[in-house]
């Protein structure tokens, strides 16, 4: 088990280096910061341009890219205060990134917990009487809701609850001018974004859980459990649900990408200052000193999530050997 974790963690380093390199090249080619600089400052002298290239490591050619990448990497590993400053505005990258990271973690954490618990519960309820009315309603609505893109639900919820009814604030974490922490205001601002992310998760997990329980429904061990004379509730919790959770957990690792994508969209629509907004702004500017640490965080969380999903899988199913 420990060896498995260590090996997976060791894999993290080359994967991060490899993927960030690809991203670096993609950004350099895609956004071409030098050309952007020249366009923005048409009267910049040759020396000014050269200085710009030196400062940001924007060397040309194949080896230039590699040199540029490693100079970024070298300053990156020295810690946040040594990270290259953003191309636009020469600002420090870490403080705004950290700020948006915590905002995103809050939004993602709350929505995921709400989404998964309600989703699993709904799936279990649907599976109690397969083919019944409750099952039909839950299954069909989960199917339809699952087909709705997060930006559609975000825009519609914003229109109804913030603009038309005026019950909830349309955007941000706090109203303009608000200083300091205020739980009530923050909760109000979180309700709509959390709902958008959570319903997406609820729809998915209700369907997964229902299907998984129906899969184990005809297992022999459920018959054995009933033959023991234990209550139906105990058969459900300790046997059907417990065993049905095993395959559902593996999906959790795979779904992180989708959840993160949904977060970006939600944050953009509700102007929620999270990592999604950070990414969209950085991408719009082609600001690789900002984009690269963002990518590192995304890659590490994707890989860590997969690792956690694998470990949970092994814990839930003793038959799985990790090596």
């Amino acid at each position: 088990m420990l060896r498995f974790i260590i090996r997976r963690l060791l894999w993290l380093v080359p994967t991060v280096v490899f993927v960030t390199f690809l991203v670096y090249v993609a950004i350099r080619i895609g956004w071409n910061p030098v050309a952007t600089y020249k366009r923005a400052n048409p009267r910049a002298s040759e020396a000014k341009v050269q200085q710009y290239i030196e400062v940001n490591g924007l060397y040309e050619g194949f080896w230039g890219y590699i040199r540029g990448y490693f100079s970024w990497l070298w300053s990156f590993v020295q810690g946040p205060d040594q990270w290259p400053r953003s191309i636009k505005g020469r600002a420090e990258v870490w403080p705004p990134l950290r700020y948006s990271m915590f905002n995103t973690l809050r939004l993602a954490g709350i929505s995921t917990i709400i989404g998964i618990s309600i989703g699993l519960l709904t799936g279990i309820i649907a599976s109690l009487r397969p083919g019944g009315i409750v099952d039909g309603v839950i299954n069909t609505s989960a199917f339809v809701v699952g087909s709705i893109q997060p930006f559609v639900s975000a825009v519609v919820l914003q229109l109804i609850f913030a603009v038309q009814l005026g019950w909830l604030p349309p955007a941000g974490v706090y109203p303009p001018g608000q200083d300091g922490f205020d739980l009530w205001l923050m909760t109000q601002h979180l309700i709509l974004p959390v709902t958008v992310v959570a319903i997406q998760i609820i729809a998915g997990y209700a369907r997964y859980m229902r299907a998984s329980i129906l899969d184990v429904r005809s297992s022999d061990y459920l018959r054995t459990a009933r033959a023991k004379g234990i209550s139906e509730f105990r058969v459900l919790t300790r046997h059907s649900v417990r065993n049905a959770l095993v395959p559902v957990v593996t999906l959790l690792g795979l779904d992180l990408g989708t959840i993160l994508g949904g977060l970006i969209i939600t944050e953009a629509i509700f102007e929620y200052p999270g990592m999604g907004v950070f990414f969209l702004r950085a991408a719009g500017n082609g600001d690789f000193p900002q984009l690269m640490p963002y990518m590192v965080i995304i890659i590490v969380s994707v890989l860590m999530f997969n690792l956690i999903a694998d470990l949970t899988y092994a814990v839930l199913d003793p038959r799985i050997r990790l090596d």
Binding site: A26, A283, M295
Partner: peptide
Amino acid sequence: LAFPFLVAVIVVRQFLGGL
């Protein structure tokens, strides 16, 4: 497939556009 689709598609779109 594990990577957030939106992030990847924005980067790849820009990259292809630069070639």
